[in-house]
Design a protein around this nucleic acid. Structure first.
Lengths: 338, 338
DNA sequence: AGTTGGCACTCTCCCGTTGAGAGTGCTGAA
DNA sequence: TTCAGCACTCTCAACGGGAGAGTGCCAACT
């Protein structure tokens, strides 16, 4: 595409993302192209419309980017916007003051993304393919009640109260925990399953069964934590003035099942993904764009952090800030060993 | 108030909560009081308006309950609506299938409340006045990196990674953990603080410092978990058709700080609390009613579960279902020992 | 070739008007 | 105390006209 056409498309996107009003040839001329006449710009706009990058709400209105227009913009025209120092500081502050546990951190990351991008945000907790055991602990609560604590790779803590058929003292439990640590440390659920098969009936087998259950839950179910935040930011945008639009989006966000699927697609995929309007498989997100990136404390443990907003979104700013928060959260997780 | 006036007020509330349309004398006559003429009802309505219980959106519209009208209704006229069996079953299912940890359960409870009341819900995690230590565990991650695990009363698990100045083997840590368990078991942060003062410089003092930090965070910060869900349900209501109304509510819900204050008021207060419209201190909740109840695994550990919706809410149904979920969640927490 | 000013055309949006409908308060009679 | 009748008020939807914004096209210019 010729340079001038690109410049005009870029100008239309920029103008429309800030003003939310269809942009006409005159506005472009006076604000971006003082050396060109509005008639020239009009003919370029007409060609961009023919190419499918722009459209008009009605015959005599200004131009609005189509989904393809936004796509062309993010693929070829977008330059990451530098982040102001006070926004950088804000991100650092929020993440530094975050709670020390995984869930708290994920929520804080989502909150921060929502705040600095002024859109809604989503986040899923980092998770590895298979959960390995780092440490087992057994605590006696009552004679026949044991608290099973599992420390998994990535320092994920899992707990479960187990009602045992036979009583056991804390001393017995401590010995048993030491044994389990020796046999299961660094291993995953398949190893635990093998030990379970071989174990004679009794307390150890009972507890091994629970260990397996917890690991399974942690693998299958740990799609688990998916949070979202900043929905109120969307309400500031005119595209959500009538609430039915928001209703569909909320359905997707609150029905975390959808999100889980969406987010899982990204893991293993490229590092940054932008899904624009009709590219969304979920019909509730028509008119919305989703910007996603991965993050996590290690290369193996990956979660997804993302922004949900109208397709008329300040992509260059959103991407830059999202990635900044993702980097910050990753560092913080590595640091906390969480 | 005379019986007939009460009956008419009740009818207006009932009709308006279901139809969302101001209710006129004719509608009341045909649907509730076939033996009275609409003129008689009109004069009663006029008197109820004089008493401040009803109002009119404009001169020639039907009547709408005022905040005082709703207040009179919930205080004197409301009868708890029986819960259909399939709703009961739904509640049980959702709670039974809930994850085994505290946070998961709180979220699930909020989700269930939102689903069965068709409004937005809020929940804060049960918490006691002072966190007591039940068990301490130390896990060696690296030579100079220790994972500190604290099991608190109510089976709350807290973790923190500690970078120590001196290296320690797992065996040393295990011995130290046993010592800490002995001295701190069943005690709260003040006891830990005393030990910290007396301890000689070294690994133990370092770790005790962290124990105190975690306990403090757990007490002060554990206003912590406040979740909300079901905002999309509000969008079904005509009072939120224009999104500015929702914006204010979302501000309150997402700015968990407000909520924390609101919810904390209830703890120690009566078991059920209904705050209607202008009774709300937070201006963002004008036009909204909040129904709150306490819940928790034990008498000492109390959290708050609540419903947020328009003042035009089916109070008798909401209260019944909210309390059912609160009972269910309490039972489930006690059962899981979470 | 590409660019430009001029011009007719189209469509939205705002605003005032109008008529139908709903619901009220009041009054006089049962 | 209740009730039928009636005039009155106010909203809401539909309609129409005028202003404004922006377009496409065309002929002329560089």
């Amino acid at each position: 595409m010729e340079n001038r056409k690109q410049a005009i498309l870029r100008a239309v996107v920029h103008e429309f993302t800030t003003s939310a009003v269809p942009v006409g040839s005159q506005a472009l001329q006076s604000r971006y192209f003082v050396n060109l006449s509005s008639a020239t710009i009009r003919s370029e706009l007409a060609e961009l419309s023919d190419l499918g990058y722009l459209t008009q709400p009605h015959t005599s209105a200004g131009r609005v980017p189509t989904d393809s227009g936004y796509r062309y913009f993010v693929d070829f025209l977008m330059e990451l916007e530098p982040i102001p120092d006070r926004v950088k500081a804000f991100i650092q502050d929020k993440l530094r003051a975050a709670p020390g546990d995984m869930e708290g951190l994920v929520e804080r990351a989502a909150m921060t993304v929502a705040a600095v991008t002024q859109n809604a945000s989503v986040a899923s907790a980092p998770q590895g393919a298979q959960a390995r055991i780092k440490h087992v602990d057994l605590v006696s609560l009552e004679p026949r009640e044991v608290l099973l604590i599992l420390l998994l790779e990535g320092n994920l803590l899992r707990q479960q109260v187990v009602n045992t058929t036979q009583a056991a003292t804390q001393a017995q439990l401590t010995r048993l925990a030491a044994k389990l640590n020796h046999s299961l440390g660094g291993r995953a659920s398949d190893e635990a399953r093998r030990h379970y098969e071989d174990a004679p009936l009794g307390l150890e087998k009972e507890l091994l069964g629970r260990v397996i259950a917890v690991l399974d839950l942690s693998e299958k179910g740990s799609e688990g934590l998916v949070v979202h935040d900043g929905v109120r930011n969307l309400l500031r945008q005119p595209e959500f003035a009538e609430s039915s639009r928001l209703h569909q989006v909320l359905e997707v966000l609150e029905e975390t099942h959808y999100l889980t699927v969406l987010l899982r697609q990204l893991i293993g995929d490229s590092d940054l993904q932008i899904v624009i309007g009709s590219e969304n498989t979920s019909s509730g997100l028509q008119g919305c764009a989703v910007v996603l990136t991965t993050y996590g404390p290690t290369a193996r443990l990956k979660g997804v952090l993302g922004v949900v907003g109208p397709t008329r979104m300040a992509y260059s700013q959103t991407v830059a800030r999202l990635q900044a928060v993702a980097r910050g959260a990753s560092d913080r997780m590595a640091e906390l060993g969480v």
